[in-house]
């Protein structure tokens, strides 16, 4: 019983990893918009990299989810 309670807490804590991804997404899009505002001609180029970068940053958050799964399968 104690084990499963600890597992639940651990899973909840692993979800905190999403915060980092949130900061990353904010920085990514903020900087991208800044770049486009500075140089509107580069919008196509920049937006291509936004989406690639977004996928990478999002994946970081999902590594936390994987940790949750690992705890889940152990608990």
């Amino acid at each position: 019983m104690e084990n499963s309670a600890a597992a639940l807490i651990g899973m909840g804590l692993a979800a905190l990893g999403f915060a980092g991804s949130g900061v990353g997404l904010g920085t990514l899009f903020g900087k991208a918009i800044e770049a486009i505002a500075r140089q509107p001609g580069a919008e196509a180029q920049v937006s291509k990299y936004i989406w690639i970068g977004m996928a990478f940053v999002e994946a970081i958050a999902l590594y936390g989810l994987v940790v949750v799964f690992i705890i889940m399968s152990k608990g």
């Binding site: 996928a55 990478f56 999002e58 994946a59 999902l62 590594y63 989810l65 994987v66």
Partner: peptide, 12 residues
């Protein structure tokens, strides 16, 4: 990272 990225995105 390559495998977990895809798997985790789809699963999530």
């Amino acid at each position: 990272s390559l495998s977990v990225r895809l798997f985790a995105n789809m699963t999530a």
